[in-house]
Design a binder for these strands. Structure first.
Lengths: 225, 225
DNA sequence: AAAATTCAAGACAGATCTGTTCATATTCTG
DNA sequence: CAGAATATGAACAGATCTGTCTTGAATTTT
């Protein structure tokens, strides 16, 4: 039932989880252990005793650093989000092509994420799914994370000269969320490529400001049907 | 903290949850109560005491009908899936247009689902997100549910004369999952329409067997970039 | 009417949960 | 070296968890 530490590669291309960070203080060991257990076995299902056992520390130390399990959950989500975004946007920042290329490479980066054996889905999607009604802190953390994503997507859409950058960002958010969930359920990373093809078709069919791309402009409305 | 019974409309268009079924036996009351609580507050976070309190029954009765909480979870997921599919495919069966229309109406039906104040996301997505690693029964139930969906989508794609019906079904699955998650997080039903526009663009760009639709055929590969 | 099944209410066991306390040990700082 | 902050182990409290059991009442079937 218990599982060892795997997939640890400092500064490597797969460091998308906070749990893979190098250990230093007791606080960090607790954070890494909690991160791993929360993300792999659920938040409610993971007790603090299990966390301190994995972190090889004492309960008093945990409650010295965090006033409650709820606060620990919030800290873990924050750290997971920050680590993931650093990894994700770091990968994308290396792409030098135009905005269209960067927007499509998103799904190649997602593919690498999905292909990691340690992939467990998006911590924020999982947390909102678990707590759902009545945990506004978790919902707010997820909203902040998604806002980061939407801001980046919107910036690319503006660079694309898209007529409605916000709608482009929303569309890509749907594709990203859908790919994450489909890959998580099926353990099949290729859903990232399916989402990429959808994105290509979407961008091809979009009338751009300068009419740069070849496809004939099509209105987004429900024209035919 | 506790919430009453809302959204009950027998045989109405919004009966997508098993929890909205009419009460009869004690077993049904338990199922409805468990359904509501599991879906709104999480599976691990809901104790059997809370369930029997809401069902106005006794613990002995619960354990007379279900050998364990795990079995109750499985039964709830099965019932939720069946009720939802009956509702969903029932709505779609009324559409008499061609397959393209039915495929796009999917997102209008989803919109109605998302717009229900009682909407809590997809129980299977939420369950897999909560248990994630190590609960194969839940994963299998989710896989069966998704298989129903994929089978229907594939049948529509074949009727469309799509070159790769399975890939069309996968694409729509990504769009559906993405819309569900985005709507669940934002509480904004219009993500269904965003997904619908993505689907329209996808279908428009797809080369069909008989070349029925007007758009110039574009290969799905990574042509330009 | 009698018998059998179902149900309600609650006590109970044993485990596990979050969180506290306290004495001690370690480590960092001045 | 002295003092301050931090880490640790272990026991403890109180609540809650799943699951069992008993007793008696209601309901249905024979």
């Amino acid at each position: 039932m218990d599982d060892g530490v795997q997939g640890f590669c400092p500064n490597g291309p797969l460091d998308w989880s906070f749990a893979a960070q190098p250990a230093t203080s007791a606080r960090d060991r607790i954070m890494r252990a909690a991160s791993h257990l929360f993300c792999n076995h659920g938040f409610s299902a993971t007790g603090v005793d299990t966390i301190i056992a994995r972190a090889e520390t004492a309960k008093a130390t945990l409650y010295h650093h965090f006033t409650s399990k709820e606060e620990l959950i919030a800290a873990v989500l924050e750290a997971e989000g920050e680590t993931w975004r650093r990894w994700f946007f770091g990968r994308l920042a290396r792409i030098e092509g135009p905005a269209r290329v960067r927007l499509l490479v998103v799904f190649d980066v997602l593919h690498d994420w999905f292909a990691d054996p340690a992939f467990y889905g998006c911590p924020f999607i999982n947390a909102v799914a678990e707590f759902d009604t009545g945990n506004d802190a978790v919902r707010a953390a997820a909203a902040r994370h998604k806002e980061h994503l939407l801001t980046w997507l919107k910036a690319q859409a503006i660079e694309l000269d898209a007529p409605d950058a916000a709608e482009v960002a929303r569309s890509f958010a749907v594709l990203i969320d859908g790919a994450i969930v489909a890959a998580q359920h099926s353990r099949d990373p290729s859903f990232a490529l399916t989402a990429r093809r959808l994105a290509e078709g979407y961008l091809d069919g979009m009338p751009l400001g300068r009419g740069a791309r070849g496809a004939a402009p099509r209105g987004p409305g429900k024209s035919a049907v």
